[in-house]
């Protein structure tokens, strides 16, 4: 199934949370990426029918989502806010979801969903005694109980420990491969790149980028960029690199070399060749950490 957003905006008074966004989310895993406060939650809420767009339309396979409770037959939602009744047990909570969906065999569906998130063992404890990661998994189970073709997850990995993260990532990947339409929001690049093939990027409410993860990443890295390099002979390597135009500025510090590359890819291609020619061993090459917000605002500024 496909979620389509056409020129969607949402404002609260004079504050524009989502600004003229048009996108289509199709089968597979899509990551909704952007810094905190970029409007990811607002956008997800509009897709889930919990918020009216101030402008534009949100549709699921052509039918409007807003004020249409029938869409929940096809949507599974994992909200960011707690949204779990603390006084129910995990089992009761997931079973209630199955019943609310009017499934023919709610008990079996709930059992299956809890097994999927590996929550069978603590299922009879009250949710209020759960850790954050367990609550998160129970929410996922409740969202999966009716086997929806569309899954919306708002910061699903938040509060999960590495093992649980890994498990949920595998789960999302396999469901995406099985043809479900999955959208999950995150502000952690690493998380997104391990699960999603396709990303949509929001910055300050604007749709900043959209498409294949690798291509966007290349676009993002295609700008003046800082490299830190350690080698068997930093001084000689610095001298050699300075001869090329792609290395804009080279400075030598106690921790090695810092190179400001004018042309990112050009420099990255040059580096191993120069090192080999000079007979210098490369010990470490690190691109300075990408700061999402600056990368994205660069993208926005460039495109305007």
């Amino acid at each position: 199934m496909k979620i389509e957003l056409a020129q969607v905006s949402r404002w609260y008074g004079n504050v524009v949370a989502v600004n003229d966004v048009t996108m289509t989310i199709g089968p597979g895993v899509t990551g909704l990426l952007g810094p905190n406060g970029a409007g990811k939650s607002t956008l997800l809420h509009m897709m889930a029918g919990f918020l009216a767009p101030s402008n534009g339309t949100v549709t699921l396979d052509g039918t409007r989502v807003w004020k249409n409770h029938q869409v929940y037959r096809h949507i599974g939602l994992v909200p960011e806010r707690e949204g779990v009744y603390g006084f129910l047990t995990g089992w009761q909570f997931v079973l209630s979801a199955a019943r609310l969906h009017g499934l023919p065999d709610p008990v079996e569906a709930a059992r299956k969903a809890l097994a999927t998130v590996e929550m069978e063992e603590p299922k009879d404890r009250r949710v209020e005694t759960y850790s954050k990661g367990m609550r998160q998994r129970v929410k996922v189970a409740a969202a999966l109980v009716h086997d929806p073709p569309v899954l919306l997850l708002d910061e699903p990995f938040n509060g999960m420990d590495p093992r649980q993260r890994l498990h949920l990532m595998d789960l999302i990947r396999s469901m995406g491969a099985a043809g479900k339409t999955i959208l999950f929001s995150s502000h952690i690049l690493e998380e997104v790149e391990r699960v999603a093939q396709h990303i949509e990027v929001l910055v300050a409410g604007r749709h900043a980028a959209s498409g294949d993860f690798r291509e966007i990443r290349r676009l993002m890295t295609d700008r003046p960029h800082l490299f830190r390099i350690r080698s068997s002979d930093d001084r000689r390597l610095a001298a050699a690199l300075m001869l090329d135009d792609s290395a804009g500025g080279v400075s030598l510090g106690p921790d090695g070399l810092e190179v400001r590359a004018v042309e990112f890819r050009g420099f990255a291609r040059l580096l191993p060749r120069v090192a080999r020619t000079e007979g210098i061993s490369l010990h470490e090459v690190s691109p300075a950490d990408e700061d999402l917000e600056s990368v994205f605002s660069y993208l926005i500024n460039r495109s305007s």
């Binding site: 919990f50 409770h69 929940y72 707690e82 949204g83 609310l100 969906h101």
Partner: peptide, 15 residues
């Protein structure tokens, strides 16, 4: 107040 109503509202039941 605490957002738990989302559990009911995200189901195919009319509000």
């Amino acid at each position: 107040d605490d957002g738990t109503i989302i559990h009911l509202m995200s189901k195919p039941i009319s509000r």
